[in-house]
């Protein structure tokens, strides 16, 4: 399947939260007890049962009010930190660009949760599994739009081929910049290019997003250096033992069993 994309044009989002309900319904996720966090936001963060929510940020300056609303969910990175962190091979990437967790393989260790720069995956302590937005891969692979996109009434969410939609996003960005000079496209290159991308009206920080998201340095060090070097080192130790035995044998050190003397010639 070709690479897909969901574009969230925040200039068209009114924060109606229909996407959130649609997600819960399609994925049969139970409601949770909430209270208002700030502004009209009721969900503080992702949970094993909340895979998408709308964040609300109020920016008032120079007698201009900007009410920034953003549908948060897994970005489905091309270069996903969660996948890299997963020690159980439970996380994989599809050709269509979705990053999915195989619940059968997941052991709930939470390394993905710790390493995602956006804090997306969350471990259910009871089920001992990590959960996050699936991108509605079950729908996408059956030629349906993701449920959130299907539900969005304002046209803020759009689903399509990544190449086409990214081109459209750039065109739209140029229009949006007229009114919001700080507007930017988020997700084209970030994390290797994300399947869920945004047109943001302000800096990523204004929405609580990192400007330059990256897998933590520790993760890279761990997975790209310590892991291979460590494996080689343990293998090396084992090999050294084999050579040690061979060396001793060749030198005849294992002659008549004379405990205590062998080492000294």
């Amino acid at each position: 399947m070709t690479r897909k994309m969901v574009l969230a044009d925040t200039s068209k989002c009114t924060g109606c939260k229909a996407c959130t309900v649609a997600c819960k319904e399609w994925n049969q996720l139970p409601a949770e007890k909430t209270q208002l966090v700030r502004s009209y936001q009721s969900m503080r963060t992702f949970t094993p049962d909340t895979w998408t929510f709308v964040s609300f940020d109020e920016n008032y300056s120079g007698s201009q009010m900007h009410w920034l609303m953003r549908k948060a969910q897994c970005f489905h990175c091309a270069d996903p930190a969660c996948l890299k962190a997963c020690t159980s091979k439970a996380i994989s990437k599809t050709g269509s660009g979705y990053v999915v967790i195989d619940a059968d393989l997941c052991i709930g260790c939470g390394y993905c949760a710790e390493n995602c720069p956006f804090g997306v995956p969350k471990v259910d302590d009871q089920k001992k599994k990590a959960f996050k937005c699936t991108g509605c891969i079950d729908r996408v692979e059956n030629n349906l739009k993701p449920m959130c996109v299907q539900t969005c009434q304002t046209g803020a969410l759009e689903f399509g081929e990544r190449d086409e939609l990214m081109a459209k996003a750039k065109k739209r960005l140029a229009e949006v910049k007229g009114k919001y000079p700080k507007a930017l496209l988020y997700g084209e290159k970030e994390m290797g290019g994300m399947t869920h991308s945004y047109i943001l009206l302000d800096s990523p920080e204004a929405y609580g997003l990192p400007s330059n998201p990256a897998a933590p340095l520790a993760l890279t060090l761990w997975k790209d250096i310590i892991r291979p070097v460590g494996t080689v080192a343990v293998g090396g130790a084992a090999a050294a033992v084999v050579f040690g035995i061979l060396g001793n044998a060749l030198r005849g050190n294992y002659g008549p069993p004379e405990s205590g003397k062998g080492g000294k010639e």
């Binding site: 309900v21 819960k24 139970p30 409601a31 949770e32 909430t34 208002l36």
Partner: peptide
């Protein structure tokens, strides 16, 4: 409806 109460948990 719990999923709606979750979105707007009370008056203000």
């Amino acid at each position: 409806i719990p999923v709606l109460n979750e979105l707007m948990p009370g008056p203000f």
